[in-house]
Amino acid sequence: MSLKAAPLRLTAGLGMIGLIILACGVGPWLLRPLPGMDPARAALLPPGSRVTVVQCRNGAVYMSPRVEKGARAIAVLGPGNRRIEIETAQIARVFPHRYWLGSDRFGRDLLRESLSGGRISLAVASLALAIALVIGGGIGLAAATSGTLVDTLLMRLVDAFLAFPILFLLILAVALFRPGPSTLVVVLGLTSWMGLARLVRGQVLSLRQRDFVQAARVAGSPWWRIWELHYAPNLVGPVAQDAALRLGDLVLAEATLSYLGLGIPPSTPTWGSLVAEGHKVLLQGWWLATFPGIAIAVLVIALALVGDGLQDLVRSAR
C-alpha cells in the first residue's frame, strides 16, 4: 500500500533508532554511577522512587529520608534499621537520586543499567551485521560473477550453513568457547550471512538480464562503470531492507543468548541478561524484567519499520 506511508514509517523507525542510540550513547555518561549502595535499603525500589544518598568520608553510603540544611548532624537509617546520626563534618557528599525505572537487587539504577546494556546490545548486533554483510555480500558477488562451477560450490556452501540448526550452533559455540562479546559477535556474524549471499547473488543475476544493463554493455561501458551506475544503486535498497530486518533478528538473538547466560558475562549488563536477572525476582520487582524487555521490543519494532519503509521505497522505485 501507500507510497505515502513509506516515508512516514521510515522516518518513524529511523527516529526511534536515533533516539535509542542517543540515549544509550549519552545516557550512562550523564547519569552518575551511584556509590555502592546498601542493598538492604536500596534494593528493589519501585520505579520513580526518590532517595537521598549520603556518602561519608570513610566511604560508607547511607540513604536518608531528608537532609536539613544547616543542621549539625543528620539522621540516617543504618544497618539493622537503626537510626544513626552522622555529623556534618564526616559527610563527603549528599545528593538526591531518583530511580526512574526502579532499582535492582543490589540497589543499582535500572535506567542506567539498561542504557549501558543497550550500548552492548547495539554494538554486538551491529558488528555481527557488519561481518554478515561482508561475508554474505562477498560470497553473493563472487557466486554471481564467477563461472558455473564456483557458483555451484559457493551456493552448496550456503546450503550447508543453512542446514546447521542455527540456535543449536550458537548455543554449542558459546557453551564450548569462552563466552564474551567477541565470541558472540563472531558466532552471530558467521551464522547470519547466508540470506544476504542469496539475496545479492539473485539481485545481480536478475539485474544482468535487465535492459538498462544489457544496453550499457552493448554500448561498451567498462565493467566498473556498469557496477557504479547500475548494479550498486539497485543493490543498495534490497540489501538495506534485508539488513534492517536482520539487525532486528540479531538483537533478538543476542538478547536470547544473554538471557540464557551464554552471551556476555553477567557482570556486564545487556538487555537480555537484565531480563534474566529480572526473572529471578519477578515477584518482588516486576519492573526489572519489564523495562529491558520493552527496550528490546522497541528497537526491533523500529528496525522492522525501517525495513518495511525501505521495502515500500524499493517497490515504488520500480
Binding site: 533478538l252 519477578l282 519494532i301 522492522a304 519499520l305
Partner: peptide
C-alpha cells in the same frame, strides 16, 4: 502483530508466567 513481532519470546514467557 508489529508489537508481538518485536517482543523477545523469553520476555513474553516471563510475562505470561507472571
Amino acid at each position: 502483530s508489529l508489537g508481538l513481532y518485536g517482543m523477545p519470546s523469553f520476555w513474553l514467557a516471563g510475562l505470561a508466567i507472571l
